[in-house]
Nucleic acid binder design. Structure first.
Lengths: 186, 186
DNA sequence: GGGGAATGTGTACATCCGTACACATAATAT
DNA sequence: ATATTATGTGTACGGATGTACACATTCCCC
């Protein structure tokens, strides 16, 4: 150990601190869950004093709302972009498959955040609105290539595949994902 | 108002109190979520003093584990019973459809408990084991009538349909549930 | 029926949380 | 340059929570 380790917190007046706090909140939610998300934990992760969080946000709910909104926005955007880049239905099917396979094998955090949002939405009207906006947007993206009924059912199937796989001991392989989706779409 | 309303808590020495506490815990989880589940709230719902909860359970986690285990057991049993009562595949499909439609239109609590269990399982190894046992059991039930791959994918589809419908503004109709399942099973 | 074990109860305590708020510092307008 | 505002910081407080524990009551076996 080398001395008392300077506390060193000279980072006064940085713009964009609010943004960093939202990112820190998402990190905390993914790591400890909504239940473990506190002002103090967010401040610790963002390396700012406690008072800074209460200054930038009127309440914890406001932090959660902004964090989940940002996450949903980003996720929906990925969905949108991939599906708007293809023209025919076959390519759309491939896009959906690779999307799911990547979301699955990719960031585990994304799934955790989704589930955390679901349970939070079950009791918080504001977060429920965020969830519904997210769902609606991904459905709209699917409706570029599939009829509304198919889009909705396909959305549900995707959700189930991701959730089921993430909680299972042996995750589904990309091949199984492909098979399930193709079997539904025929 | 008629008087000071007798506090009246003469219920000393009732066997099965532990069971009632587990039921009370499930009620609390469904109403307030895992995050809102505390010793005191469980005691309040079960109408017993605080000390009684800490006497019967070593920790809050033990209460949650027992509660979720009981719920998963009951849910899996329903699944089992319905699917073991039919013989041919067509009847099995109908059983699955009515199962989902009833779980959907029926107890909203069941869905909430499922989602709460999912998020709790994401961070608690003990609860993850409970979840996996539950999943395995429902898969086994499906495997009575479908091959393993189909059973797993169908399980995921069911999960997605239920979850998606419950969080949406306009829930899916039984007809839409039927269509989605039939479309997957062809 | 007596004594030890099991079960039940009330209180107390250390800890953590959200939030409030007084004060400090930097940015900006005049 | 000065005044006004925006931003940042540290501390404090009331409330809730998990758990420990001393004491009461009932059960059960002899």
């Amino acid at each position: 150990m080398s001395g008392p380790a300077a506390p060193r917190r000279p980072r006064r007046h940085d713009p964009g601190r609010r943004d960093r706090l939202i990112d820190a909140a998402l990190t905390v939610i993914a790591e400890r869950g909504v239940a473990g998300t506190t002002h103090r934990e967010i401040a610790r992760v963002a390396d700012v004093p406690l008072g800074s969080v209460t200054y930038h946000f009127a309440s914890l709910e406001e932090v959660l709302r902004e964090a989940f909104t940002r996450h949903a926005e980003a996720a929906a955007q990925v969905f949108d972009r991939r599906l708007s880049a293809v023209r025919d239905r076959d390519a759309a099917v491939e896009a959906v498959i690779s999307l799911v396979a990547e979301d699955l094998l990719g960031s585990q955090d994304d799934l955790v955040l989704a589930v955390e949002l679901y349970v939070a939405a079950a009791r918080n009207p504001v977060l429920r609105a965020v969830t519904q906006a997210w769902m609606q947007r991904s459905r709209r993206a699917l409706e570029r290539h599939f009829d509304p009924t198919t889009a909705r059912q396909l959305d549900a199937l995707i959700e189930g595949l991701v959730l089921h796989s993430a909680l299972s001991t042996d995750p589904m392989t990309p091949g199984q994902i492909r098979q399930a989706i193709e079997r539904y779409l025929r």
